[in-house]
Amino acid sequence: MLVVEDDFVVAEDLQDELEQQGAEVLGPVATVEAALSLLESGPLPERAILDVNLRGTMVFPVADALRGRGIPFVFVTGYDHAALPAAYAGVSCCEKPTDMPALVRLLMA
């Protein structure tokens, strides 16, 4: 499970929760570059959780790379779902603060 989240506290919290659910966490990483290089070097994750806005940089290149590899992912964002570009309208989205059971359900779906 790849976690891309730039806030350390939130990223660590996600990691703890996912590990408690028995998932193995890849990352977490805070930047688009770090996420892409993880995908390049492998092993590939089965799923991914992407924070939309990483210190002003949009996570979409990572989303596109995941799509290219057929890896499902969900967005986590502090913005409204409506603020997402139309190209990602079909992507599941969790608003912060994250409702963990809901996020897990989304990921496992």
């Binding site: 806030d7 506290v9 939130v10 660590e12 919290d13 703890d16 806005n53 964002t77 502090g78 913005y79 409204d80 603020a83 608003e95 912060k96 603060p97 994250t98």
Partner: peptide, 21 residues
Amino acid sequence: VGELQHRTRNLLAVVSGLSKK
């Protein structure tokens, strides 16, 4: 307003993480 909403939600996520830690 968008920023404020974003910051607030992020802050709550941080608070939530901090409380668990």
